[in-house]
């Protein structure tokens, strides 16, 4: 809570027109926002543009943030997520948006994970050794439906708790948990299928939903 109070003090200075405070706020949070965008889109370039958009929107609406409505991180993540949804709808993946709830089978896309892995996206994963594995996981993440993807990103990469995620996504906590379960299992299946290691994909459907 102390943390959030400090952030709110900073926010108030920004609202008062303090440029140094604004820069501090940007520096404090740009990595988090960039990472959410990068992991969701899988593109360094999109992540950069979207992060900028998030901060432009944040700059305009900073005065509306109220700490009693929740942590600044939650407020900021909600804004980021809304922009990502907009971006997703604009982008060529439109066709998936409508069928999000139908649940996605990894085979229904024409581009296989293998093909995707064969044309690696430029990314900021610097370390060469783990770079390949990370690109592989990122490619699998890209195959998840956006609903499952955002849920696991917020939980497993951004470390938000279920209550916060429920707030960001505006769905009940039970739904959050179920999406995280499905996101994780689907990711594991995609990766084990590609590498023919780990668990067989046998009869897991019956257990789901």
């Amino acid at each position: 809570m102390d943390d959030n109070q400090a952030i709110f003090a900073l926010v108030r200075r920004c609202v008062g027109g303090d440029a140094a405070a604004w820069e501090e706020l940007v520096r404090l949070h740009h990595r988090r926002i960039y990472n959410v965008c990068y992991r969701f889109t899988g593109s360094a370039e999109d992540a950069e543009d979207l992060s900028q958009e998030v901060f432009i929107r944040m700059y305009r609406t900073l005065g509306t943030y109220e700490p009693r409505k929740g942590a600044f991180t939650t407020w900021m993540t909600t804004m980021t997520r809304n922009l990502l949804v907009d971006h997703f709808r604009r982008s060529r993946h439109d066709r998936l948006t409508d069928s999000m709830d139908a649940g996605t089978s990894p085979d229904e896309d024409s581009v296989t994970l293998g093909e995707q892995l064969a044309s690696p996206q430029p990314g900021p994963d610097r370390q060469v050794e783990s770079g390949e594995r990370q690109a592989m996981v990122q490619a699998a993440l890209q195959k998840l439906s956006p609903e499952l993807r955002e849920a696991v990103i917020l939980r497993d990469l951004q470390d938000l708790d279920y209550r916060e995620i429920a707030q960001v996504l505006r769905v009940p906590e039970g739904t959050v948990k179920s999406r995280i379960n499905r996101g994780r299992t689907e990711l594991a299946r995609l990766l084990s299928r590609t590498y023919q290691q780990g668990t067989p994909g046998e009869d897991a459907q019956g257990a789901r939903k």
Binding site: H30, R31, Y34, N35, Y38, R39, A44, A47, E48, S51, G123, P124, D125, R126, Q127, S130, R133, Q134, V137, Q138, A140, L141, V152, D156, L157, N181, G183, R184, T185, E186, L187, A188, R189, L191, S192, G198, T199, E202, D203, A204, A207, R208
Partner: peptide, 21 residues
């Protein structure tokens, strides 16, 4: 099986490092 897969998925995700902006 579902539990094993969820656990594996979680571990895969944990291998993703923070990307440098």
């Amino acid at each position: 099986l579902m539990f094993r897969e969820a656990e594996a998925g979680m571990r895969w995700l944990a291998t993703l490092e923070e990307a440098a902006p």
